[in-house]
Design a protein around this nucleic acid. Sequence first.
DNA 1: AACAAGACCTGCATGC
DNA 2: TGCATGCAGGTCTTGT
Length: 275
Amino acid sequence: MPELPEVETVRRGLLPAMQGRRLEAVIARRPDLRFPLPDGFGQRLTGRTVTGIRRRAKFLIFDFDGPDALIAHLGMSGSFRLGAKPFPEERHDHVIFKTSGGGEVHFNDPRRFGFMDLWEASDLVAYPMLARLGPEPLDDAFTGAVLAARLKGRRTPVKAALLDQGVVAGVGNIYASEALYRAGISPKRSAHTVQGARADRLAAAVKAVLLDAIASGGSSLRDHIRPDGELGYFQHSFDVYGRAGEPCRHAGCGAPIRQFPQGGRSTFHCSRCQR
DNA sequence: AACAAGACCTGCATGC
DNA sequence: TGCATGCAGGTCTTGT
């Protein structure tokens, strides 16, 4: 899926099309995504005006002039597309939002690992999937010391720990590999050994790679497209992800990037530059 | 509590 | 051409 930078890109793309607009209709074309949609999903949103769209980790939170917030997750293959009526429905367009002013927003998700839910806006901290999340990596409060404390006592490889949303929220499979490369840390290193200066480097690398990716509109591999239909282009800036066999970009290295499975996911790294 | 593996889905590239 | 296999930006549940 979209990781944090892609979700942030989606948020920014949706904002101008939805904020301040009234939802004239919300149509669920099937009763479930990953989970069943909540009872009265369409009715509870219809007639509400979107007051804002927030992001927490990889979750989007839509606020309205009413008690419910809409929590949305893109899973692996979810995307939003904007259009003006008539806006043809495509295969896997599961939820359609019709907004005041004649616009439409379609949520498309072939694999249906994404979901939408409604929750009392004033009590979002109690929403289970949000309650479990660790620190937001782009917050100033996310420092090397905070990361080190969260990795303490963990015997799992640091790559796996970065994917744990309770350690740091929003990093996924691509940016975990990219951040470890930038920090010069082996993905195989036991998480609890990432302390002190190493943790400082990793926290800084996580922030930097996420910010660089956001600045590029995220990465478009298979499924991520921005709401306006444009593609992100950070995939052209990957140092390791998807570059198995290609040379390490570090001046004077040039060793082939290696790929190997970790916890069922592909990890990419330079075994010479990352220790 | 931490960790590994399995589960949920569809689409696409690959190889026979 | 058809079919089987493996893989894909995620996260929950289960079992050790």
